[in-house]
């Protein structure tokens, strides 16, 4: 179902979600309006883009000086 929803909202995506790898949905989604559905969909997409292990990745980003 999750994959179907995603297809409906973002038809231009060229990555196809594989059904058997769908993460467990958050328990009991509270009241949803159209606006929050758009946001939820966006956040789902970004979940798949974010680097794994946020803490380690952010800690490893160390720069050496600059203007």
């Amino acid at each position: 179902m999750a994959a179907q929803e995603q297809k409906n909202v973002s038809p231009r995506t060229d990555e196809v979600e594989v059904d058997d790898d769908v993460a467990t949905p958050p328990p009991a989604a509270p009241q949803t309006s159209e606006a929050t559905e758009g946001v939820d969909d966006l956040l789902d997409e970004i979940d798949g883009v974010l680097e794994t292990n946020a803490e380690e990745f952010v800690r490893g980003f160390v720069q050496k000086g600059g203007q």
Partner: peptide, 21 residues
Amino acid sequence: GYRQRDGLDWNDARLGLIDLQ
């Protein structure tokens, strides 16, 4: 959006990652 969905505090590493990425 992330804070509301996942109840994250401002010092959560995921928010730092979103800022970076």
